[in-house]
């Protein structure tokens, strides 16, 4: 099992670590959110802004903004579509699928034979099942995946959804969201 992950250097910086813990649940919705965070951490507003800038440049933060919940917007048909791609072609096909507008996640993951033969995971959202299935068909044709086994796993119930909680993982006092059941 490949579980080796190189922790990002930002993790070794106590300020960055504290900042990540302070902002992971979202910024306070006040006029000067970075100043509010700064006050909690005992640093300056400029330092907070500069640190977030650095995390964005380093790619630790992918994006900073409004995080939407698809289901509440009526995109209630979300399907995880998994593919058994020949290893030699996975990079090429992964990059092509990852660039399709309605594919919202595209990860390579290990097969777990014999139970699980699929190595490429895509997420496809749609406003209903028919739209999702039409998009899967379109992907099969446009990328030439007719010979590739795939399965469509529609979501049914959502038991829990929230941002990753690294502070809980680090043994810090849990954030209030962590106990929240799904809506």
């Amino acid at each position: 099992m490949d579980m080796t992950v190189t922790p990002h250097p930002a993790l070794n910086d106590p300020l960055q670590r504290a900042l990540i813990e302070a902002i992971q649940g979202g910024l306070p919705l006040v006029a000067r959110p970075y100043a509010a965070i700064a006050e909690r951490l005992g640093v300056s507003e400029r330092e907070v802004i500069r640190s977030i800038q650095t995390l964005l440049e380093q790619g630790v933060i992918k994006r900073l903004g409004v995080v939407v919940r698809h289901y509440e917007l009526g995109y209630d048909a979300n399907a995880m579509v998994v593919w058994d791609i020949p290893d030699a072609r996975i990079g090429e096909i992964g990059r092509r699928l990852g660039g399709v507008p309605y594919v919202t996640l595209c990860y390579r993951r290990p097969r777990q034979l014999p139970q699980w033969p699929y190595n490429l995971f895509t997420m496809i959202h749609g406003r209903d099942r028919a739209e999702v299935l039409a998009r899967v068909d379109e992907l099969v044709c446009s990328v030439g995946l007719e010979a590739v086994a795939h399965q469509v796993l529609f979501s049914r119930r959502r038991f829990k959804q929230r941002g990753a909680c690294y502070s809980a993982a680090a043994g810090m006092p849990g954030d209030p969201a962590s106990s929240g059941a799904s809506r």
């Binding site: 930002a10 902002i23 649940g25 910024l27 790619g59 900073l64 995080v67």
Partner: peptide, 19 residues
């Protein structure tokens, strides 16, 4: 109303901690 879960960062997987 739950349309937005938060206004803030989305972290790249496996950069902060492992998942």
């Amino acid at each position: 109303i739950g349309v937005v879960s938060r206004v803030g960062p989305v972290f790249r997987p496996n950069r902060v901690g492992v998942s």
